[in-house]
């Protein structure tokens, strides 16, 4: 019942599947970077997270360095806290003085966390962001209503 031809064709079937899986893994999902499991956790508090969601990216100058893993409300201060996983490739790279802001990709695009590395004073031993650090300097997302309010207010005051 199992002739050589059958086994050969089943083997080809399996080979095609593996090729397709590799295509999906490497070309489509680019597992190399985003699937890296070695990360360290960094927290940041914002006044307003806008449209930021879990799994949004964390970018430095446009380069993805990590992902947002969780967004929750701090139960004492009642302000949003964003929990991010930064790739271990960048451990001990970003100083404590770095700032994070919530930016929008393109005009109608998704929101992401932009990380601006802080200034390192030459000659000083800098303290880097590490596991469970908090980023102090944060800029919240732009809320459209506030912008419009500002615009109207400034028009009002100028006229």
């Amino acid at each position: 019942m199992t002739s050589r031809k059958t086994e050969l064709l089943v083997g080809i079937f399996v080979a095609i599947t593996i090729a397709a899986t590799l295509l999906l893994a490497l070309q489509v999902a680019n597992k190399g970077v985003s699937g890296s499991s070695e990360t360290y956790t960094v927290f940041a508090k914002f006044d307003n997270i806008g449209g930021l969601k879990a799994r949004s990216s964390v970018k430095v100058g446009g380069v993805v360095v990590g992902r947002v893993s969780r967004i929750y409300l701090d139960d004492k201060e009642l302000i949003p806290v964003v929990q991010m996983e930064i790739s271990m490739d960048y451990i001990n790279t970003f100083p404590e003085t770095s700032s994070v802001s919530i930016l929008t990709a393109g005009l109608l695009g998704e929101q992401y966390v932009g990380l601006q590395p802080g200034f390192i004073f030459p000659g000083e031993d800098p303290i880097f962001l590490e596991q469970d650090s908090f980023v102090v300097d944060t800029k919240s997302a732009l809320v459209l209503e506030d912008l419009i309010g500002q615009f109207l207010f400034s028009r009002d005051s100028s006229s």
Binding site: V28, A29, N30, G35, R55
Partner: peptide, 15 residues
């Protein structure tokens, strides 16, 4: 075509 796809598609979540 490929790069935006790579940025959006996730291995665990989607594939």
């Amino acid at each position: 075509y490929w790069s935006i796809m790579q940025a959006t598609v996730e291995w665990e979540a989607d594939v």
